[in-house]
Amino acid sequence: MRALDSDLVYNFRRSPIAIISTLIVVICVGAAALAPLIAPYNPFDLASLNLMDSMIPPAFLPDGTAAHLLGTDNQGRDLVSAMMYGGRISLIIGLSAVVFATIVGILVGLTAGYAGGAVDAVLMRIADVQLTFPAILIALLVSGVVGVALPPSLHEKLEVYVLIFAIGISRWPQFARTVRSSTMVERGRDYVLAARVIGLSGPRIVLTHILPNAWGPVVVIATINIGGSILDEATLSFLGVGLPATQPSLGTLIRIGNDYLYSGEWWITIFPGVALAALVLSINLLGDWLRDAVNPRLR
């Protein structure tokens, strides 16, 4: 394990893409995490908003002001601050959805892979059926159904959890399939037989022997899925089934800005868009690098 880690570090140091991607991710995550401390304004503080400040262009344009580096949106929110807070929400939803999908996927994958037979067949057919629908469609469906089922008063409060659930549930089959196939490989290994010879129970073997060895590919898939989940959230918010304008994520900001794109106020949509693209691209590049770095066949 220690050797693998140091190999990773070595690989990392020699990959400019990995280094630059990490840098961007760290900046984005840092800005998002520390938003309450370092953001110039609090975009949620309605009292501080002034409609007179709305639609101020970025500082480098003729009408811009140094007080709002990237300008303001239609409600007078400082765009830098809104993006920091928006990125925070995007990242929380993206990460939580992946954690959710990972947990569901690992449980299903371990069960299917170790039990085999009918259990495996049923679980995997469910996964197959779900994989035939685009993830975004499932997320749309889930968030639509939940939206109707819940009383409107709860919407704003629960919207974040609904999104996490909707995106997470649309992504678990990938994890389940990967974990299942590594479980099936490990299940036949002699060290698992050795544990069975002394009579250890199935769940104990799965948790102490198989899971630690099936773990590697999950980390890679999880990384790649974070980017996708953030995009899913942005898409849902852009389509208007995501977060409300009072709680803007990067996707919500893009949607709001989209209305003004053709009237000349391009910055409201372009800056959050660029931030979103940079973040997702970096995460995906990092995921690709990780996949190659831990795959012994490509080394």
């Binding site: 060290y191 010879v197 002394i198 022997h209």
Partner: peptide, 15 residues
Amino acid sequence: MNMIFQDPYASLNPR
């Protein structure tokens, strides 16, 4: 009773 296996690379959990 216990058992000794063929492949010493597969019979010990690497982790």
